[in-house]
């Protein structure tokens, strides 16, 4: 039932600067989170990744797919 949201990490190269999918999603499904946090150090923007955290809320409206400038997001309706 749950839609399958996939983010191609190879295409999504600047998650921290872009964040278009986060802002456009009507259900606020996405999150951009650092993959590591170090003491005394700000995380490198390259160490961020977009995650579809609240994917059970997704309505497959496909705004994220349209908004993604690199075509890294794919959404498939769940069977």
């Amino acid at each position: 039932m749950m839609p399958q949201i996939e983010i191609d990490k190879k295409k999504c190269t600047t998650p921290y600067e872009c964040k278009k999918c986060l802002q456009i999603c009507p259900q606020a499904v996405f999150a951009v989170a650092p993959t590591k946090i170090e003491r005394f150090k700000e995380t490198d923007p390259e160490d961020y990744e977009v995650q579809a955290v609240f994917r059970d809320k997704c309505t497959v409206y496909m705004d994220c797919v349209k908004a993604c400038p690199t075509g890294a997001v794919t959404v498939k309706a769940g069977a």
């Binding site: 650092p34 946090i37 170090e38 003491r39 005394f40 150090k41 700000e42 995380t43």
Partner: peptide, 9 residues
């Protein structure tokens, strides 16, 4: 806070 600059961006 400066110990965790990522948290307190």
């Amino acid at each position: 806070w400066e110990e965790w600059p990522e948290r307190y961006k």
